[in-house]
Structures are given as C-alpha cells and as structure tokens.
C-alpha cells in the first residue's frame, strides 16, 4: 500500500487500540467513526468551536485539527474515559445541579477544558474562567451557569485541599 494508510497504536481511555487508518483521518473522526466514541463531537472542523476537545498525552487539543496518525504511541483521553474514571465527577455534578448545559453538545469539550483550568489549582476568578473557556462555543446557556459551576467546583476542591 502507498503511504496513504498507516498502522497506529493509541492508548484511548487506558485501552490500547491498533488500527490501520487513512492518513487524512482526523483524530475526532477516528474516535467517532472508527472507535464509536461518540461523546466527542464535531462542531465546526476548523478548531473554533471546541466541541471536539480531547486530551492528547494530558494536553487539551482540538480533535478536528489533530490527525489520527499523529497520535501513534500517544495517550488519548475522551469524555467517556474521564467519566468512567470519576476524574471529573464533581464537575459533572455541578454542571447538572446548576443546569450549566442545555442541549449538551458543547458539554464534553467544555468539561475537559474546565478540568484543564482547575488542574492548575487555586480558585480562578470568574474573568479567568470566562477567558479559559472562550474557545468553547455554547449557544444555549449564555455561559453564566457554566462559569458558576466551574467556580463552585474550584471552591470545593480548594476547600478539600485545606
């Protein structure tokens, strides 16, 4: 076969998967179409809306701007993984309690982006929260409930650390 197809091995949510993929396949299409991990969404395919946010070797990336072939040997975490592990259970509970989602389409990306901010520790200001999630488009909520929920979890986690 030409160089169009590549064998990759990726650790997705802790499980190693081996697939032969088309070089042009994006990470988000790999996750959704090849692995049926549909919790990661496609919004704009231009890296602007943040619906496809996933973690690649611990860093938040756009699944639509990353090629699957780039992920050979890497670790990818999606919303399914961080849900099952319980890593963001407090954020998920706060989002539910505060109704920080309506249609829910942006929510997986929003949660991973929020977790990235909160993993830095401390209690970020509302302005810092708004700044950090400004690459994640939500058409439903107007963002305030999302900011409230993230702020509440930051305070909870800071309280727990004391």
């Amino acid at each position: 076969m030409s160089e169009r197809f590549h064998d990759i091995a990726v650790t997705v949510n802790g499980e190693e998967v081996r697939e032969r993929i088309d070089a042009r396949l994006s990470l988000v299409d790999f996750l959704r179409a090849t692995l049926a991990l549909t919790g990661t969404h496609i919004g704009c395919e231009h890296g602007l809306c943040g619906a496809c946010t996933v973690r690649l070797d611990g860093e938040v990336v756009r699944g639509c701007l990353t090629l699957a072939v780039q992920c050979d040997g890497a670790r990818v975490d999606t919303i399914e993984g961080v849900s099952d592990s319980g890593e963001i259970a407090d954020l998920q509970t706060a989002f539910q309690k505060r109704n920080a989602l309506q249609c829910g389409f942006c929510t997986p990306g929003m949660l991973l982006t929020a977790q990235e901010l909160l993993s830095r520790g401390g209690v970020p200001s509302r302005e810092a929260i708004r700044d950090h999630i400004s690459g994640n488009y939500c058409r439903c909520t107007g963002y305030q409930a999302i900011v409230d929920a993230i702020e509440a979890v930051a305070q909870q986690r800071a309280g727990a650390r004391r």
Binding site: T40, H41, T107, P108
Partner: peptide
C-alpha cells in the same frame, strides 16, 4: 443531564 455530561447522549450525528 447526567447522560449528557458523560458523553452518552445520542445525537442524530451519532
């Protein structure tokens, strides 16, 4: 909401 926060929704695109 729990389903939607866990990536377990089923949108038509899924």
């Amino acid at each position: 909401l729990a389903r939607l926060t866990q990536g377990r929704a089923q949108y038509v695109s899924d």
